[in-house]
Structures are given as structure tokens and as C-alpha cells.
Amino acid sequence: EINVTSHGEEQAKHWIELAKRMNLDVEVEIHGDKIIITIK
């Protein structure tokens, strides 16, 4: 399980695309200006 804290939408999209390509599950939480991505 990987937790990524992203401070930008572009960076977040990059991680989500990467996870989808690798067929991994992704959870995205938004806390103000921080985007927390959990890849399982």
C-alpha cells in the first residue's frame, strides 16, 4: 500500500493514471489543498 500526498491536481492525475495502468486500486481523499492518494 502506497500513500502519496499531492499538492497539485496534475501530480495527482499522474499517480492515478499510473495506478490504473498497473491495475491497482486507488482511493483519493481531498483535504483542502492536499490530495491524499492511497494505492493498494
Results as ranks from 00 to 15, higher is better:
Ile39His: 00
Trp15Pro: 07
His31Gly: 02
His31Thr: 11
Val26Phe: 10
Glu9Ser: 08
Asp33Pro: 02
Ile39Leu: 06
Ile37Pro: 00
Glu29Asn: 04
Ile36Thr: 07
Glu10Met: 08
Asn3Phe: 11
Ile36Met: 02
Met22Asp: 05
Lys40Thr: 08
Arg21Trp: 15
Thr38Asp: 01
Ile36Gln: 02
Glu27Arg: 13
Asp33Cys: 13
Ala12Glu: 07
Ser6Lys: 07
Gly32Asn: 05
Glu10Pro: 05
Glu10Gln: 09
Glu17Asp: 04
Lys34His: 11
Ile16Ala: 04
Ala12Trp: 15
His7Asp: 07
Leu24His: 01
Ser6Pro: 06
Asn23Gln: 05
Lys40Asn: 03
Glu27Leu: 11
Glu29Arg: 09
Glu9Pro: 11
Ala12Arg: 04
Glu9Asn: 10
Thr5Ala: 06
His31Gln: 08
Glu17Tyr: 12
Trp15Ile: 06
Ile39Cys: 06
Ile16Ser: 04
Val28Gln: 00
Val4Ser: 06
Glu9Val: 12
Gln11Phe: 14
His31Asn: 06
Lys40Ser: 03
Ile36Leu: 04
Lys34Tyr: 14
Ser6Trp: 11
Leu24Arg: 01
Asn3Pro: 08
Lys13Tyr: 07
Lys20Tyr: 14
Ile39Met: 02
Asn23Leu: 14
His14Asp: 07
Ala19Val: 14
Leu18Val: 06
Lys13Asn: 07
Asn3Met: 13
Ile2Tyr: 06
Ile37Glu: 00
Val28Ile: 10
Thr38Phe: 05
Arg21Thr: 11
Asn23Ile: 15
Gln11His: 05
Asp25Trp: 15
His14Lys: 11
Trp15Asn: 06
Asp33Ala: 06
Val4Gln: 07
Ile30His: 02
Thr5Gln: 06
Glu10Asn: 07
Leu18Arg: 04
Glu10Ser: 10
Ile39Arg: 00
Val26His: 01
Lys20Gln: 12
Ile35Met: 02
Leu18Tyr: 13
Leu18Met: 07
Asp33His: 10
Thr38Ala: 02
His14Gly: 04
His14Val: 14
Val26Ser: 01
Val26Ala: 02
Ile36Pro: 00
Ile30Pro: 01
Lys20Asp: 15
Glu10Tyr: 11
Gln11Asp: 09
Lys34Glu: 05
Arg21Pro: 14
Ser6Glu: 07
Ala12Leu: 14
Ile39Pro: 00
Gln11Lys: 11
Asn23Arg: 11
Glu10Asp: 11
Asp25Glu: 12
Glu29Pro: 00
Gly32Met: 09
Thr38Ser: 04
Glu17Ile: 12
Gly8Pro: 09
Ile35Cys: 06
Leu18Ala: 03
His7Met: 11
Ile16Leu: 08
Ala19Glu: 12
Asn3His: 13
Lys34Ser: 04
Lys13Gly: 06
Ile2Lys: 05
Glu1Ser: 10
